[in-house]
Nucleic acid binder design. Structure first.
Lengths: 110, 110
DNA sequence: GCAAGATATGTCATATTTGACATAACGGCG
DNA sequence: CGCCGTTATGTCAAATATGACATATCTTGC
């Protein structure tokens, strides 16, 4: 997207390029990215809500604090598998996950 | 679960141990397994509905027919990432995925 | 300001996942 | 039956994700 158009849209109150910053991503790729972002956010939210530190969660998962940090930062090096296993080990329900997916859907670039 | 109880339940019309055959899996692990199974089923269903062969889908994904076969068989060697990217590349919507998650939830062992 | 606990960032050897390939087993149809 | 398109299974080198570790950067209370 050109800067001028973005600026104009933002002036008009739009949120543009909500994270995906799409550089030639197909719609499916965008949704995939948004999904990972949403799940990452969900991990952080649920973890904090449970009063757990990254270290605590790492121990539960047999992982390490640094990996949890990367996960919550939606680092490219973390898989959906780890995100999902994290969510479940924190106690996320199927419904929690559904909510995150809907958030991802809503968050994909217009 | 003891065999006697299982038999009794099955006589009564219940489906017992729907796939997870839990050998000491925690509830979270069960749900994770069911999730992969449900997504695998979703891939097959949507692919067939679109009239695509495994080879066709493989080409779209830059993967191979054998990997698609393994994915649909929910082979242990396939990741959630690949399952999800497959679903999206077939054209699954967020809602389709939500449905699969709910199926996984319903399918987890009692 | 400075500890102390928590989180972030970077690197790396190891483990897992991957596509590719070969080949087998299906299925339908002539 | 034999053929052909499709799917299943096994193997493997290359690609990617992983936990561990070191260390830097936040936070928060004192």
């Amino acid at each position: 997207m050109k800067t001028t158009k973005r600026t104009r849209l933002e002036r008009a109150g739009w949120q543009v390029g909500t994270a995906a910053e799409f550089l030639g991503l197909t719609p499916e790729e965008q949704l995939f990215v948004e999904l990972k972002l949403a799940l990452a956010g969900g991990v952080r939210q649920l973890r904090e809500r449970r009063g757990l530190t990254q270290g605590d969660l790492a121990k539960r998962l047999g992982s390490s604090q640094s990996r949890i940090a990367k996960m919550e930062a939606a680092d490219a090096s973390v898989s959906l598998d780890l995100l999902m296993r994290s969510l479940l080990s924190i106690g996320a329900t199927a419904n929690d996950i559904v909510k995150l997916i809907k958030k991802a859907e809503a968050g994909r670039a217009a």
